[in-house]
């Protein structure tokens, strides 16, 4: 059981990184980005390429990968989002499907379908009270928590964070107070892309990168933001951990002492989350009401 909880914590940290950025984007722009999984993987692949092919050190490769991811996200916004979302906020749902196909093709052409790991040497596995985990996993979980804490500080304790929250609550009211909402839209979208790339680096270090991972990542992130209350940053993060934990428990527990659920059903947990929450509580677990005068 302890092993399952630790596995849930590790998988949840990855999902929280990705879902957090997505929740902000939904909160501000009200759009769904169905190419999120591909953007996650491209961040990981960029670091893999810089580290394994170009031969840069890991920290430099990570910085380079994040810069590339930021640039790609900005181009994505200008080409696939900005020309469409003001016309109708549902159009990007279809354009990001197109983006997902293009990024999938790019990954298959440049990095091929075989698994790629950012670290070439084996992992340092520790055994703590019967729970097995690697030193890299500990670093990743701690770094994720630190990153989220920094994000919390920026969001809630700085003028920049106040501006973001103002735009999330009401774009037009924020603009009338002198906040440049269109710039913040871009900043938030790029920020979500960088957080997604962090998730991709996490996957590349902890597991292997393959293009087939993209869609399950997207689905899990959407399950988290739907269950957490669309646009609610902290709700999405809590639900990301919850979904990851449930995924581990569903396939790891011997049900009624008689049988195990096949591992193939693990992805169904996120799908069930989406279905159950949209049916029973469409506003999510942590929905908030817009302030009114």
């Amino acid at each position: 059981m302890e092993q399952l909880l630790i596995n849930g914590l590790i998988a949840g940290s990855l999902a929280a990184l990705i879902a957090g950025g997505l929740a902000l984007v939904y909160g501000v722009l009200g759009i769904f980005n169905l190419a999120l999984g591909q953007m996650v993987l491209l961040g990981g692949y960029a670091v893999w390429w810089l580290h394994q092919s170009v031969g840069l050190t890991l920290p430099v490769s990570i910085v380079g990968g994040l810069l590339m991811a930021g640039g790609l996200t900005w181009v994505t916004f200008e080409v696939f989002i900005a020309p469409f979302y003001k016309r109708h906020r549902f159009l990007p749902l279809v354009t990001t499907i197109a983006l997902g196909m293009i990024l999938d093709a790019a990954m298959l052409l440049f990095f091929e379908a075989r698994p790629r790991s950012i670290l070439s040497n084996g992992k340092n596995i520790m055994d703590i009270g019967g729970v097995r985990l690697s030193v890299e996993q500990v670093y990743l979980v701690v770094l994720t928590v630190l990153l989220l804490c920094v994000f919390a500080y920026v969001l809630h304790s700085t003028p920049f964070g106040r501006r973001i929250r103002a735009v999330v609550q009401h774009s037009h009211a924020a603009m009338s107070l002198g906040i440049r909402a269109s710039v913040l839209h871009r900043v938030i979208f790029i920020l979500s892309g960088v957080l997604a790339a962090c998730g991709g680096i996490f996957i590349g270090i902890d597991q292997n990168l393959t293009p087939v991972l993209a869609f399950p990542i997207t689905i899990k992130a959407y399950a988290a933001i739907i269950a957490g209350g669309k646009g609610n940053f902290w709700g999405a993060i809590v639900c990301a951990y919850l979904i990851a934990l449930l995924e581990q428990l569903v396939i790891g527990i011997e049900w009624f002492g008689r049988f195990y659920i096949p591992a193939g059903y693990q992805q169904s947990v996120a799908l069930l989350f989406i279905i159950v929450f949209l049916l029973c509580r469409p506003s999510g677990l942590f929905s908030f009401k817009n302030r009114t005068a």
């Binding site: 020309p83 469409f84 197109a98 997902g100 196909m101 293009i102 093709a105 790019a106 298959l108 052409l109």
Partner: peptide, 20 residues
């Protein structure tokens, strides 16, 4: 190994162009 990605790329561009 190339036909699949090329098809994806083409269809992605067509879908984007069609939506636009």
């Amino acid at each position: 190994g190339v036909v699949g990605p090329v098809r994806l790329l083409l269809f992605g561009l067509i879908l984007l162009g069609a939506v636009w």
